[in-house]
Nucleic acid binder design. Structure first.
Lengths: 155, 155
DNA sequence: AGTGAAACGACCGTAGA
DNA sequence: TCTACGGTCGTTTCACT
């Protein structure tokens, strides 16, 4: 991952293309072209550039709740020592879906997804609180997800 | 959104198909078929079913940082009154990318994305803390994103 | 649920403005 | 950076298992 800030500014056409692909990532380039007023080849070139530049990627996103993962939580973690080392250990756990180094009363925020309460308790007690450098954790159990956006910059 | 829990169990083949599409949402069904040992038509049928069931969707995901949105934060919000009403108001704000009702010392967790510090301050002070029912907010500014998974259930 | 085959449409490379 | 076009490959439909 680069530390250099690499910002792209998008014109209205690229924004429109991204919008189309946010609705359906498999929509054909020809169809998108009709919607945004461009030829199939031009759409294809733009999509390729946006993807190569890391601005956008087209991927499958799954719904944990529909797959039997019924407990989700955000953890606020206070760390003694190097937060990056703890973050790397968390990243290795498959139940951890999101790790961010943060400034504020927590050093790390981590989102976890588990099948049920037992799995959540095991994960928290045996595999997260046991990690070297984890000084304290606070758990924010998810009750209901109201909004989740994967899309940014198209405004 | 349904309140009925609607869980699907996936066989190894569907998991393998999802894994392929998590790497590249535009990979052809024929290629996926080769990888998972199924005909093109069978892969397509499964993808269609998974999509219709809401287990999976194929979409474009963009990177805020690459688009000039340089400040991200998680907000912990304490609410007086109905948390759902406040959550709905937050959901309407375009800078809010994630809203979840939570149990713990916060009633709502909300992720926000802004261009810069000025935009962040304006959003927080003028449009979030001003909302009816927002009793207190705590801001966890993102320093570095270490992991972000869109994929679940493929283990 | 799966395969196979034929018609159709999408995708890709290249040439040219 | 775009359009135009031809070859190739993917997708769709359907009959069958």
């Amino acid at each position: 991952m680069s530390t250099i800030r690499n910002t792209t500014t998008l014109d209205a056409t690229s924004k429109a293309i991204i919008e189309q692909l946010q609705l359906d990532g498999r929509r054909s380039y020809a169809e998108i072209g009709k919607a945004v007023g461009l030829s199939e080849a031009a759409v294809r070139q733009r999509v390729q550039k946006l993807t190569e530049a890391g601005v956008m990627q087209i991927v499958a996103v799954t719904d944990p709740m529909r797959l039997g993962f019924n407990r989700q939580a955000m953890l606020g973690i206070r760390v003694s020592g190097d937060t990056r080392v703890v973050a790397d250990r968390l990243t290795e756990l498959p139940e951890v879906t999101y790790v961010v180094l943060s400034a504020g009363s927590f050093d790390i925020l981590a989102e976890i997804v588990c099948a049920d309460d037992d799995a959540l308790i095991e994960l928290l007690n045996q595999r997260i609180r046991e990690l070297d450098g984890v000084a304290a954790t606070e758990t924010f159990l998810y009750l209901q997800l109201k909004k989740q956006k994967y899309d940014w910059g198209t405004r």
